[in-house]
Design a protein around this nucleic acid. Structure first.
Length: 580
DNA sequence: GCCGTTTTCGGCCCGACTGTTTTCAGTCG
């Protein structure tokens, strides 16, 4: 997409300028612009045609001209020129922790270092020690930064980071000097991938508490240790920052370290306009401290109602809060059922009875057991005969449990074949209470074919849910390509729900797509796709993803009471009979 | 390079930590 291409150019430009020692605010302007373009929903060429480029935050006359130039010629001359004398590999090195533009610039000038290999050679031969300002510690730090960079080149999925952080919280709470500990940062905002783990504590003796923290068994390496902050590496090469603050500043610190950066800048700007100063210690007017012990107090003083962390991306939540139109985000207790899970009839590990028992423990009112259709051979998809066997067993479990919840619905996860047909004939899926359709093969079809394929599936009157629409697997498989707007439109028209799949490597739909779908009037289903009893608990990742997408319970079919939900299940089929 | 309820110039979020510095620059979040 052209927006991304231009954002990349601006991002690089920002780094090139910093490297060259240009006015740092000029570099910052490019960085801001790049971010703004990445957040943009509209197509740049379209906005250019309508003369609306300068409406984009951070885009002024000059950058609008550069965007125009790129749309016309696929390049931006001034950016190409600026980049000419800066080696490509050097720019990438700015991602290494501890290496900034100034240091790299010096290394380039003195030793002609152009890329990672040059840098490592220079380190190995001990050349750097001769440079002014380069002591042993600094050189060690660069070496460590390189290792870290190589190890965690990719961000960690939320589903790995959150349990690790929760374990660390337990450990912190076990330290005598720690009064309270919380998760902050992108983890608290539940971003789908996490760079570092940020933790915050109140302590009776901060230096001591932090020292104790660095001695925990899970800590592999101490990067930094001060009176208010400790930075360590834990197992798996993950960086953890712990900050200790006074009780009266805790709310301000929690707000500050939760971010996002853009959200904070926006909030600070508002504070400034009111003549206030907002930092991690509190809200101040001049020297006078107005508050900061509680997070909601910080927001209130700035004149913005507090909002859930998942919204804090500066994607319109501050404006929405001030205008009193914050969404009532869906939450875990809202969910009354899970509509996508597998048993040992296909590739799940647990029996029907075990899955039902697990769902009962979560307090669900209804669930659908959705095993695979036959073309999913690796997943042991059910042919007609085994489907009959499953139906019989399901009946047995139903009888055994009597009136006890959850209600057990016969479901199926039917493959959407490459040509758009479903992997069961209508007469079979018509017998299922809940039909979940999904792509599991031919991922690389053209955008047009994939769009048609999904439209065909949505058009089938027995389909209730389009599962994991993007079909991505983080770190191993890219999302399939299709015209999302058309799919949403068709789903709204048909009353088909789009899934927010809670599997940590899927998180599919994305937050932005879920939000766009809800805005277009679509309904959603938040499901685990569980393959074991334990995986039923993954639901929280689906919920946090939905919350990041501003999703309200009213849009989530499996938060609806049984009568409303069962009516929705039946509605599709009535339409069919009306049409027939 | 952007931007404006201190507005067309002069700011731009702001504080902690580190290392090597004798008073601060670089980097990070």
């Amino acid at each position: 997409m052209i927006n991304e291409e231009i954002a990349d150019i601006f991002e690089k430009m920002s780094r090139v300028l910093a490297f060259k020692g240009a006015n740092r605010f000029r570099a910052l302007a490019y960085e801001r612009a790049a971010r703004s373009l990445r957040d943009l929903e509209e197509d740049l060429p379209e906005m250019a045609r309508e003369g609306k480029l300068e409406d984009i935050p951070g885009i002024g006359k000059d950058l609008a001209g550069k965007i125009q130039e790129y749309i016309k010629t696929k390049r931006i001359r001034q950016c190409d020129q600026e980049r000419r004398d800066v080696p490509e590999g050097l720019i990438a090195l700015m991602d290494i922790p501890g290496l900034g533009p100034k240091t790299l610039s010096l290394l380039h000038e003195k030793y002609q270092i152009r890329d990672l290999d040059d840098l490592r050679r220079a380190l190995d031969t001990g050349k750097l020690e001769k440079l002014r300002g380069f002591g042993k510690k600094k050189i060690d730090n660069i070496q460590r930064g390189i290792n870290l960079w190589l190890a965690r080149h990719q961000r960690m999925p939320l589903g790995i980071a959150l349990p690790l952080a929760e374990k660390l919280l337990d450990d912190l709470n076990g330290i005598k000097q720690v009064e309270r500990a919380d998760i902050a940062g992108s983890l608290r905002r539940r971003r789908e991938t996490i760079g570092d783990i940020d933790l915050l504590v109140i302590s009776t003796d901060s230096p001591r508490a932090l020292r104790e923290f660095t001695k925990l068994p899970s800590v592999k390496q101490v990067i930094g240790l001060g009176d208010t902050r400790a930075t360590v590496i834990i197992e798996g090469g993950i960086q953890v920052d712990v900050r200790s603050v006074a009780r009266e500043s805790y709310g301000a610190a929690l707000q500050y370290f939760t971010g996002s950066k853009q959200h904070n800048i926006h909030l600070r700007t508002l504070a400034q306009k009111k003549g206030l100063k907002l930092n991690e210690y509190g809200v101040f007017r001049g020297e006078k401290r107005l508050g900061g012990a509680r997070e909601d107090e910080v927001y209130r003083l700035v004149g913005v109602p507090v909002m859930p962390p998942e919204l804090r991306e500066d994607h319109g939540e501050i404006e929405a809060a001030m205008e009193g139109r914050l969404p009532k985000l869906v939450d875990l207790p809202d969910l009354r059922g899970d509509l996508h899970m597998h048993t040992n009839y296909s590739d799940g590990r647990a029996t029907i009875a075990e899955m039902v028992e697990g769902a009962a423990a979560l307090g669900y009112d209804y669930i659908a057991l959705t095993d695979h259709s036959p073309s999913a051979r690796i997943a042991n998809g059910l042919d007609r005969k085994r489907l009959e066997a499953k139906i019989e067993e399901l009946e047995r479990v139903r009888k055994q449990r009597g009136e006890r919840r959850p209600r057990i619905l016969l479901g199926v996860e039917v493959d959407i074949l490459a040509d758009g047909r479903l992997d069961y004939p209508d007469e079979i899926i018509a017998r299922c209470d809940v039909v979940v359709a999904a792509v599991h093969s031919s991922f690389r079809q053209s955008r047009d074919r994939m769009t048609k394929r999904l439209l065909d599936a949505i058009a089938n009157p027995y389909v209730h849910i389009l599962a994991h629409p993007l079909t991505r697997l983080m770190g191993s498989r890219d999302a399939v390509e299709f015209d999302f707007e058309r799919i949403v439109e068709a789903a709204v028209e048909a009353g088909v729900a789009l899934e927010v799949n809670a599997q940590p490597l899927r998180l599919d739909l994305t937050d932005a797509m879920a939000r766009a779908a809800q805005e277009a009037g679509a309904v959603l289903a938040i499901n685990t796709d569980a393959h074991s009893v334990a995986q039923l608990e993954l639901i929280r990742y689906g919920v946090s993803q939905a919350r990041r997408g501003w999703i309200e319970a009213r849009s989530v079919v499996n938060s609806w009471p049984w009568t409303k939900f069962s009516r929705w299940l039946g509605q599709r089929r009535k339409r069919k009979s009306k049409a027939a």
